Simulated assay, not measured.
Amino acid sequence: MDVAYISNVVYPFNTGGAEKRIHEIATRLSQNGHDVTIYGRHFWDGPQETTHEGVTLRAVAPATDLYTDDRRSITEAIDFAARLAYPLAKRLHANDHDLVVASVFPYFPVLASKLAALGTDTPLVTTWHEVWGDYWEEYLGALAPCGKLVEHLTVNVPQHPIAVSGITADRLAEVGPDRETVEVVPNGIDIDQIRDAPLPDENESFDILFAGRLIADKNVSLLLDAFDRVADEYDATLGIVGDGPESDRLQAQANSLTHADRVSFLGFLDEYEDVLGHMRAADIFASPSTREGFGITYAEAMAADCTVIGAVHPESAASEVIGDAGYLVDPTVESVATELERALSGYRPPIDPRTRAQRYDWDSVTERAAATYERAIEGTW
């Protein structure tokens, strides 16, 4: 089959989770004999159309800033969608692609992709990483109705929707398609890469690790307070990998802790393998996040044989990813501290985390994605 992916950002030139998912699936599809093209912005060096790891990269817009004041730029998304519509339509009307797979979010390129496919039999598959709903009020404030409207329009465009988790599929069904029409194809990990990642020096490793963007929903503040309660008794250390708008506040909080000397902020690590190496060296991975459309770091940490601690929350897929291969707690200081204490005492989950992680290997995910694409092409979805 001939697959066209739509993503304004392209891995490895941009390093977010959505673009990495496309890269991992696309390169494996190419290795299996399929033709794959990614339509994106021109973030790579060289010509507008090139080949990278067997996948055609086709730039329909120049590189530009993606964020405005720590938020994804709306004007960037509109600009990319406008530049995408004509060249994609030209290719689809020439029957160059069997299907289009558009990543959500942002939304406008999905609408442009549907517009481009009008008058053809090319199916549109969408990949939903999250459904925001009322979260728009927190994200945009007075402009929240605009975000909700565009999301609603995008959800209800005729499409073949894929969700990265059951919770995302459920939320999608609340505002659009019937739940049974939404396929779940999770995000993935490279098991071999994780297990072979180089370990950090012994004096640079930590007993407990957090990795992720430093935003309020991740609840790193809660983790810091919980850690402070148990650090002394277990002679434990905590490493915080990541950056974000909460960084300065969290470092100030950490400096005020009784055991501030046991907490280290590593910032954003340029090399993905360095993050994986820290996971391999840690005994515990703790992320009491209350908003996870999937939660890839939980799967990575399980593959690295960490005891994983996540939070139970209706906006998080942590329980779906972790299952019985880790521990799930209420997002409170008391609950997190209690579970940290248990894990530091040597308690392990009933299911081997490495066994659970196998279901998220990219090879397995690609097989599931390819099967759903074939069904869309054949009209059996």
Rank of each mutant, 00 (worst) to 15 (best):
D2T: 14
F13G: 02
G16N: 11
E24A: 10
I25A: 06
T27F: 09
T27C: 08
S30T: 13
V36L: 02
F43W: 08
E49V: 13
T51D: 13
H52F: 15
E53C: 06
V55A: 05
A61N: 07
T68W: 08
T75R: 11
A77T: 03
A77N: 12
R83A: 14
L84I: 13
R91Y: 05
H93Q: 11
S103W: 01
V104F: 13
K114Q: 15
K114R: 15
A117H: 13
D121K: 14
L124A: 11
W132Q: 06
D134C: 01
E138D: 13
G141S: 11
A142C: 02
K148F: 02
E151G: 11
H152F: 12
Q159D: 04
H160M: 06
P161Q: 05
V164D: 00
T168P: 03
T168N: 06
R171F: 00
A173Q: 02
E174Y: 08
V175W: 14
E180T: 07
D196A: 10
P200R: 11
D201H: 10
E202S: 15
E202Y: 12
S205L: 10
L209I: 15
R213N: 11
F227V: 05
D228I: 10
A236L: 07
I240R: 02
G244P: 03
Q251S: 00
N255E: 00
S256R: 07
R262N: 12
V263D: 07
S264T: 15
F265I: 09
Y272W: 08
D274A: 15
H278R: 15
F285T: 03
T290R: 13
E300Q: 10
A301V: 04
T307D: 10
A318R: 03
A325F: 04
D330W: 02
V336L: 14
T355K: 11
W362F: 13
W362G: 02
S364F: 11
V365K: 04
E367I: 10
A369D: 00
T372K: 00
W381C: 10
W381G: 07
